[in-house]
């Protein structure tokens, strides 16, 4: 494997966003790119990352390899990179280590680190293509704010999508709270758009603790997409450049 990222910052932000949810992960490398799928310890949330080969320049992977990496170790090394550094990931065919090289575009500094790999026996889940009942696209910062506000009142949030809009509501010991968003197009600032595509109304309840955790990815993309259907996990997607993505799946809470 040899994969060069223009900005080390991208990988730094991705790892920073998921490191509190999942600890040891396989980075599956093949000629289409670098993928990661892992569940949190409680098996309630699942992270799925795809960094497409096109996100790297150049990208070369001659043989499929799984790099088992402890994310806290990876984060320690990524913190040694300046945000603007060019990052090159390298690994042999049957690697014991992954090699990270940081190059400054402005100076002649070159830093090199090796991280020891782990053998991780991780089950890989098959997530079918799903036609969701509701797909909501909104500013990532807005979603983060709603989750942070509501967790002050309650552990859970009900997300209800109807043709009227999408309502995030919660109830707790001190009282209730709700935020409703309607579809909204801002010609001047399209990054503030809220788009709700609905094939049928849907209402599901989720643990806010996980949603707040997912929102650590807000720095990766201006927009977040929420996909809901009855009886399937919520998909929270942050789209990255070149069709790469960071997706979180969260199993709902159900009544008795």
């Amino acid at each position: 494997l040899e994969a060069r990222l223009e900005q080390a910052n991208l990988l730094k932000k991705v790892v920073d966003a998921i490191k509190d949810l999942v600890q040891d992960c396989n980075f599956d490398c093949n000629d289409s790119g670098i993928a990661l799928q892992a569940m949190d310890n409680s098996h309630v949330a699942l992270v799925s990352m795809m960094l497409k080969a096109e996100s790297f320049s150049p990208f070369r992977c001659d043989r499929n390899i799984a790099l088992g990496i402890n994310l806290s170790s990876l984060m320690k090394v990524l913190r040694c990179a300046q945000n603007e550094d060019i990052l090159t990931l390298k690994a042999d065919d049957a690697p014991d280590v992954v090699n990270l090289v940081f190059e400054s575009s402005e100076s002649d500094r070159l830093s090199e680190y090796d991280i020891k790999l782990m053998d991780i026996d991780q089950e890989h889940l098959g997530i079918p293509e799903t036609e969701y009942s509701a797909t909501i696209s909104m500013p990532a910062a807005e979603f983060q704010r709603i989750c942070r506000d509501l967790i002050a009142l309650s552990e859970s949030v009900a997300i209800e999508a109807t043709k009227e809009g999408v309502k995030f509501s919660c109830s707790g010991d001190i009282g209730n709270g709700a935020v409703t968003l309607r579809s909204h197009t801002n010609v001047e600032k399209p990054e503030l758009n809220v788009d709700i595509a609905l094939s049928e109304p849907v209402a599901l309840t989720f643990s806010l603790k996980y949603l707040v955790n997912f929102c650590k990815a807000s720095g990766l993309s201006g927009t977040v997409k929420l996909c809901l259907s009855s009886e399937v996990p919520l998909l929270v997607e942050y789209t990255l450049a070149s069709n790469s993505y960071l997706r979180f799946y969260l199993a709902p809470k159900i009544g008795d």
Partner: peptide, 14 residues
């Protein structure tokens, strides 16, 4: 009180 389901209920291991 709603109870929490796991991801495994929905998605099969490959």
């Amino acid at each position: 009180q709603a109870s929490q389901i796991t991801i495994l209920v929905y998605y099969r291991a490959q």
